[in-house]
Design a binder for these strands. Structure first.
Lengths: 227, 227
DNA sequence: ACAAAAGTGTTGCCATTACACCCATGC
DNA sequence: GCATGGGTGTAATGGCAACACTTTTGT
């Protein structure tokens, strides 16, 4: 019998926010199977498009967002992961600043929303497994490359970076040692301006030096976070 | 138009040998397209089988070998990577001891052979790119997990491990420091026996402590190889 | 006896860790 | 003036890197 397998892409897009922590973008399905359940944005690849284009298109179509940082995660292909036909899912991993986007549910999606990664609803298909894979990739990532460029505002107080790392590592960091380490990498530029956040002393703003940041990312770097 | 994409798996299986260094397993294609060219073992996934089974089956069918260590590498899916139909390839990465197997060309393969990774012939499809991706994964791998269990003989002199790392890193290693580092990981067991290799003093044999080796592998470990 | 490979310790240095008080602002 | 978050330096430790000579065998 001729091969009868379909190919889909699915995206696990993470956002970071001081209040919410790390969130994942989900859509509520408008159609069967798993109608009304939350699921990862994604869908079948068109005949003429590349896999990368397919993910970008689906994110645009279903959630109305344009994710710049996307990389391939893993391909899930067990028979039976879709109850109707055999579909293999090529999953992607993305990072964005949620505040940069206004979510808009379209086409197959009845709703779109951010969910904190520790408060996920039940998910359609094997999407729970996909999200878990993505989270463990994200956690692993910060130990061998810098993370933050895609998740923080263009200009941010140092404590934002510190909080991001604490959230991702799920453990406290010594502020002074962390500052020393990051500063020594030379990927940050200190600005003259400050920002006030609630009570307390105003914080100086920083931004990433795009060039050095990506150089370091390409070379790879071993952070040793234990403290 | 209904989706018309096929799904294949391809395997980049590496072998290590004191004389040959790092090699890749290739087959010579018996059929069009790219008839008579060298290519990675692989082929279309059957309707009812998992991706993992598909790779194992293809390796068995085309090369007659049974690869125990296999993990997913990356999925390549550009339209046009196969000149006839659209085929996406889910590639896998494997490690074996070449001496454990006798290669046997079967089904679609006219020939099977090991090629040193620096002396590869022209390859069919985009297999050159796939092999390059696999090599860079292999190089990366040894910096965050131990490697060797799957590539060395059950019992081996310490110098084999040292040579393996030197080959993979493509740079000399200080023998004393390397010994100290590996010993401190507690993944090696020293045996009473020795082995003689050509001239020189006989070398004591070692073997991996399977349990501790895989514990370390799961936990992840940061080697810092610079020297 | 010499060539070839195996085996083995010490020292200096640098990077990581641990640790606590002052500063600028809002209320 | 007090609560809140921002900002900063030093000393001790431990892990890594550099480094060369002796041992055991074959020829």
């Amino acid at each position: 019998m001729r091969q009868d397998i379909r190919v889909a892409v699915d995206a696990v897009v993470f956002g970071y926010d001081q209040e919410q922590g790390i969130s994942v973008l989900l859509i509520k399905r408008k159609i069967e199977p798993f109608k009304k359940m939350w699921a990862l944005p994604g869908g079948l690849v068109l005949n003429e498009e590349s896999l990368d284009s397919a993910v970008h298109r689906e994110l645009q179509e279903e959630a109305g967002i344009d994710v710049k940082f996307l990389e391939q995660l893993y391909s899930f292909g067990n028979p039976g992961r879709d109850p109707r036909n055999r579909v293999i899912s090529i999953s992607y991993f993305g990072l964005v600043r949620p505040r940069d986007f206004e979510l808009v549910a379209r086409t197959d999606a009845e709703d779109v929303a951010w969910f904190n990664i520790s408060k996920l609803p039940p998910l359609a298909f094997d999407h729970k497994k996909i999200v878990e894979t993505a989270i463990s990739r994200l956690r692993g990532k910060i130990t061998y490359e810098p993370v933050g460029f895609e998740l923080l505002d263009k200009e941010f107080p140092f404590s934002d970076l510190e909080n991001l790392y604490q959230t991702l590592l799920d453990q406290p960091i010594d502020r002074r040692n962390f500052k020393k380490k990051i500063s020594s990498l030379g990927i940050l530029e200190e600005l003259d301006r400050t920002v006030q956040r609630g009570a307390g002393r105003p914080a100086r703003l920083f931004r990433f030096n795009r060039k050095k940041y990506f150089e370091l990312k390409d070379r790879g770097y071993n952070f040793d976070f234990f403290s």
